[in-house]
């Protein structure tokens, strides 16, 4: 039973993750992300982390992805990205190599560690079953971890204020970001001498000016 649920959820999670990777439209990517998050929530339930499963659905699928969708719709960036263009040569093969090495490293670590995870059992607080998971989490959060909870409250406040400051409309005309055009020498018209108005035979005077060198100030 557990194995069936795990395999189905794992398939949902991985299909969703692949969908985020290859979806051309950002809206579709966001929907695939919801699929992955729901799959992870099921896996949380499977491990008796019922509170986190609920938070996963409410906060991640309910708030974070909706925020993504808001920004996508607001900015009108839901145009399909042309995935056929590869602006940096060799970026994709390199990314695949890095990803494969990362995966190989992690799985090797998993296979080598045959004696299972190390560490002391139950150092923080004993893990209950799914029924009293929320109570135990709440007790731990508001006794041993109350300072950390206060800090996260501060962090969220800073994030909200920062978001408001960053996204507010500035009075007056906005300065556009500088456009950097990168072109190879072959693509540009004319020769180097014509473009820069210099004769390659002309020697550029790189000597230090005498007046300053004299230093009579």
């Amino acid at each position: 039973m557990d194995a069936t649920v795990f395999l189905i959820s794992a398939a949902i999670v991985l299909v969703g993750a692949l969908g985020v990777l290859v979806a051309r439209n950002p809206v579709h990517a966001a929907l695939f992300l919801v699929q992955t998050l729901f799959g992870v929530a099921v896996l949380f339930v499977l491990q008796d982390a019922t509170f986190l499963a609920a938070v996963q659905v409410i906060v991640y699928a309910g708030a974070v992805v909706i925020l993504f969708l808001f920004v996508i719709m607001l900015l009108g960036v839901d145009r399909a990205e042309d995935l056929g263009v590869e602006p940096i040569v060799g970026q994709r093969p390199l990314a695949a190599v890095i990803g494969a090495s990362l995966l190989g490293l992690l799985l090797t670590l998993l296979l080598v560690a045959t004696d299972g995870p190390t560490g002391a059992l139950g150092q923080t607080a004993p893990l209950g079953d799914g029924a009293d998971n929320t109570r135990r989490l709440g007790e731990a959060l508001f006794t041993d971890y109350v300072f950390a909870v206060e800090l996260t409250a501060l962090l969220l406040t800073v994030a909200v204020v920062g978001a408001v400051v960053l996204a507010r409309t500035v009075k007056g005309a906005l300065q556009p970001l500088p456009v950097v055009v990168v072109a190879t020498a072959e693509e540009l018209p004319g020769t180097t001498e014509e473009r820069f108005g210099v004769d390659s035979d002309t020697e550029i005077d790189t000597a230090f000016p005498e007046s300053i060198e004299g230093g009579d100030a």
């Binding site: 008796d48 986190l52 995870p117 002391a120 923080t124 893990l127 998971n133 989490l137 731990a140």
Partner: peptide, 10 residues
């Protein structure tokens, strides 16, 4: 869950 510890979920 493996270690029977609530720290992971926290």
């Amino acid at each position: 869950a493996e270690l029977g510890d609530l720290g992971g979920q926290l």
